[in-house]
Write a protein that binds this DNA or RNA. Structure first.
Length: 692
DNA sequence: TTTAGGG
DNA sequence: CCCTAAA
């Protein structure tokens, strides 16, 4: 949206970010008021969002010309208010009239209700519930009001102070300081308009065009400045404190911004949507699916022994379910994994289960509970770098985490212990920490940043700031002591590989080997290399990667399904599904492996066609990425494939034998109509002769 | 939600 | 794989 780059880093400069599409905006310049430093970012983003909206709806508003708005962005961070979405709430002109003080009125679609300050406006018919702030400035002109009336939709909440004074912070609202205002204005078009309207028009007509679909609440403060300032609506996050962190800020670690991998930001993307064009319905569905799927509980890996591709289908079937579970995230990555060879991984064998931590090339840690993977870039020496993203509406802060600091570990070993044992001990200590849950801590300039709700800017992280002092740490999470934790503690990143055995191998050697390259010093993980374009998470390399069948060539993001504690960690954001940015894109292609085909064939032989749901449950229960529709489609293609000349077939060759079975089953079920009548109408196809 | 098919 | 009409 706002591709405009962030003007100057400091925000002090007066640069106007270019708001891409906004036809006009509500921008005004104003005296910069010094508001709370904190919400700059938000405001900025809000602006962008508004601009985007304006653009989208530019046509609609007739009143649009009232360009100048003086606004100050007020961000409400306090959580005590309730935000409720409202459908167009029109402010009646009367309302405004009455309050001479009201410079402009913004009607938010969604406002915070029940605000204490609200009282002053209660009388207003429609604005009752809105949190309105009355600004002392009295610009409100009747005309304007009307416009407002018609246009509202901006989703802005005004806050009214009981005494009519403009208050930048009411009810805990923080206002963004001037810096924002400056930025906002620079759009050429806007300016011109501004000039025209400069007269005191404070209207927010333009704003009206913006609709806030979502209904985040916006609180706007109108400033009295003669200078035009922009009024930014603030969108509040319903949940207290979450605001800054989530909205519009995407921080990605070692990830390109084109995808949604920002860790901990998943939600943010979602939230952002509101400002985007409304997705088509179809997309919604997809998204929905994605969401539900990717966030589902991680499968348990334990039940199945190692599945070795080479060992064949037998074991495959035996463990089919399990395998699928793991497999789902996997296959794709194989190739990717290779790309990430530089990534450093530490795996450690802890009894039967092994834990491993690896640095993923791409995504990082998800919130508190996500995987531990971190992406590190090996390129430059700067531990963290930040740079703006040219086209992002919001400048992106890119971080390259070179290393993680682990919480203090206290280790005691005899002098006679071997280096290897010491390493192992360290590993165990680390693992113990990890096993009990860890969280990521952030340190800036040596200071811990504890407030998760702050925006990066607020925390001092911006593309312009020096992030060399930014560090992340892994710390024990006391809050989440793993309850019934499965023995498998951090299989995390690696969880996905179906074929691969649990992670143990790779790393272990490293530790034992005398001088390891990348010694595992206290700091546990870390190093990363970046694979820059790839986004996959994990990379556990195992010897058998090569065996993977059907490795998918193209890079797709893996979906790490950390099996850690199923209970609490169960929810893993697999936001990785990258490639598709938010709006639904097509799913990443995941060719069926021979094993899957066989499983499919077997199921169909048994159940027949027409019962894809059952087929899915029978053979692909845990393969979340395979829907019954997929299975049906696959069957369709298999039948087709089987009927064409081998030379015309593409993709991974399917054993002849399987194709024959496909034909046989297809033929059989064509005659026995499995579907229709009740479930077991027909007997399963027996045997399959593979010959021929 | 599933099926069944076309795209 | 996606999208949908139907069921």
């Amino acid at each position: 949206m706002v591709s405009k780059k962030r003007l100057d880093c400091g925000f002090n400069g007066y640069r106007a970010p270019i708001v891409p599409r906004a036809p006009r905006s509500i921008r005004r310049r104003g005296p910069r008021k010094k508001l709370v430093e904190d919400s700059k970012l938000c405001a900025f983003e809000l602006l962008a969002a508004v601009a985007g909206k304006l653009l989208e709806e530019s046509e609609s508003s007739a009143s649009s010309n009232i360009a100048e708005l003086k606004v100050q962005v007020g961000v409400c961070l306090d959580g005590d208010e309730k935000v409720q979405p409202k459908e167009d709430i029109a402010l009646k002109s009367e309302s405004f009239d009455r309050g001479s003080s009201a410079e402009s009125a913004f009607v938010p679609e969604i406002c915070v209700q029940e605000h204490k300050l609200l009282s002053s406006f209660k009388e207003l018919p429609q604005a009752e519930n809105d949190y309105v702030v009355d600004h002392s400035s009295a610009y409100a002109s009747p005309d304007r009001v009307k416009k407002i009336d018609s246009d509202r939709k901006l989703g802005i909440c005004e806050e009214k102070n009981s005494d009519g004074n403009t208050t930048s912070k009411i009810g805990g609202c923080a206002c963004v300081d001037d810096s924002f205002n400056h930025k906002v204005e620079s759009e050429p078009e806007v300016q011109s308009e501004n000039e025209k309207n400069q007269i005191g028009d404070l209207s927010m007509a333009n704003l009206s065009t913006v609709k806030d679909p979502i209904g985040e609440c916006v609180n706007t403060d109108v400033l009295n400045n003669s200078e035009s300032s922009v009024q930014l609506p603030l969108y509040r996050e319903p949940i207290a404190g979450a605001f800054s962190r989530k909205h519009w800020n995407d921080v990605k670690l070692g990830i390109r911004d084109d995808d949604e991998n920002s860790f901990g930001c998943n939600k943010s993307s979602t939230r952002i949507r509101p400002f985007r064009p409304q997705p088509r319905i179809g997309h919604r569905r997809i998204r929905k699916m994605m969401m539900s799927k990717y966030w589902k509980a991680a499968p348990k890996l334990k039940d199945c022994e190692l599945y070795n591709t080479s060992e064949g289908m037998k074991s495959f079937y035996r463990c089919r379910k399990n395998i699928y579970a793991r497999e789902r995230s996997q296959r794709v990555p194989l190739k990717k994994r290779k790309l990430s060879d530089h990534s450093f991984e530490v795996a450690y064998d802890q009894d039967a289960s092994s834990d491993s931590i690896s640095n993923l090339p791409e995504k990082g840690v998800k919130g508190d509970k996500g995987s531990l993977a971190m992406v590190l870039h090996r390129d430059n020496g700067v531990s963290t770098t930040v740079r703006g993203h040219p086209k992002a509406k919001d400048p992106r802060v890119k971080l390259s985490i070179k290393s993680f600091k682990v919480p203090e570990l206290y280790i005691e070993v005899p002098e006679t212990a071997t280096v290897g044992s010491l390493k192992r001990t360290v590993m165990e200590a680390v693992t113990a920490i990890l096993g009990s849950g860890i969280r990521v801590g952030m340190v800036i300039q040596g200071k811990k940043v504890r407030d998760d709700s702050r925006t990066l800017q607020q925390a001092g992280i911006s593309q312009c700031s020096n992030l060399d002092n930014l560090g992340f740490t892994l710390e024990p999470s006391f809050t989440r002591v793993s309850p019934s934790v499965t023995p498998i503690k951090l299989p995390a990143l690696s969880s996905f590989d179906a074929d691969q055995t649990l992670p143990r191998s790779p790393a272990t050697p490293m530790m034992d080997s005398g001088i390891s390259n990348t010694s595992v010093d206290t700091p546990v993980f870390t190093k990363l290399d970046d694979v820059d374009n790839n986004k996959y998470i994990c990379s556990i390399k195992t010897p058998d990667d090569a065996l993977m069948d059907g490795a998918v060539p193209d890079s797709k993001p893996l979906v790490p399904v950390p099996p850690m504690n199923v209970e609490e960690l169960a929810i893993v954001p697999a936001n990785l599904k990258p490639k598709r940015s938010e709006l639904s894109q097509r799913r990443t292609r995941r060719p069926f492996s021979v094993a899957e085909v066989e499983a499919l064939v077997e199921a169909v032989e048994k159940l027949g066609t027409g019962r894809w749901r059952d087929v899915k449950m029978l053979a692909f229960e845990n393969a979340d990425h395979r829907t019954y529709v997929d299975l049906k489609d696959k069957w369709k293609t298999l039948v087709h494939t089987a009927s064409i000349a081998p030379q015309q077939r593409r993709g991974e060759p399917v054993p002849h034998e399987l194709l024959n079975r496909v034909l046989s089953a297809h033929s059989y079920w064509s005659q026995h109509q499995s579907k229709q009548h009740g479930k077991h109408t027909a007997e399963p196809l027996k045997v399959v002769d593979s010959s021929s």
